[in-house]
Design a binder for these strands. Structure first.
Lengths: 109, 109
DNA sequence: CAGCATCCCGCTAGATACTG
DNA sequence: CAGTATCTAGCGGGATGCTG
């Protein structure tokens, strides 16, 4: 049972998806979480040296709100928060792989 | 022979690709050209009522520069210009389809 | 440790007017 | 018909300082 797409609706849907991934940092964050990797906030800060705290926190919240990333808070002192992909988020990996394969097939690169 | 990806390089490559498609209008334009459709500048203006002439021209130039769209100028009066997907650009269609399928699989939508 | 609050700047998109 | 040129506004993103 697939939807019927017009150019307008298809474009809008793809745009929605791209908005989930858009911005300068989200993909970088995602690639640090793919494959079941679990990272703490400070891990991600270390892995992505150029990102500001504001942007890291903000983008993580959006990824969580969009259902891509799961955030786990442990009620300990000092605070401990872990981030990992949701199952659905992990299923984005092969899709992005398709994108990379398409890119690699570009003629006269 | 595939490339070796680190989180950083993979993210950068995907980001490059998303930049080809990014912005508010490019996907809409592409979906009006997929499947071998040929459109004149004025056709696209009519099909995408909210786009300004500046943005339409600009985005088309970028899509052309990125190798997605082919621009054909006929030396006649009044001017006639046609746009169509390149073969490589057309091959993006199934990739976007994968994106739409992934989106549709989102839980608790 | 893991954030939030504020201020600020550059860039891109949008509006409008003009042209070969 | 198929575009340029110019001006402006809004928003994403960066720097800095503060907190439970």
């Amino acid at each position: 049972m697939s939807k019927t797409y017009t150019p307008a609706t298809a474009a809008a849907d793809v745009e929605t998806t791209l908005a989930w991934l858009g911005g300068r940092w989200k993909l970088i964050i995602l690639f640090h979480l793919f494959g079941g990797q679990v990272q703490r906030y400070s891990d991600l800060e270390r892995l992505i040296p150029d990102i500001s705290q504001k942007m890291l926190a903000q983008q993580l919240r959006q990824l969580e709100a969009d259902g891509l990333v799961q955030r786990t808070v442990y009620p300990v002192v000092p605070p401990k928060v872990e981030y990992r992909m949701t199952e659905w988020g992990q299923s984005l990996c092969p899709v992005l792989d398709g994108l990379l394969k398409w890119q690699a097939a570009k003629p006269t690169n």
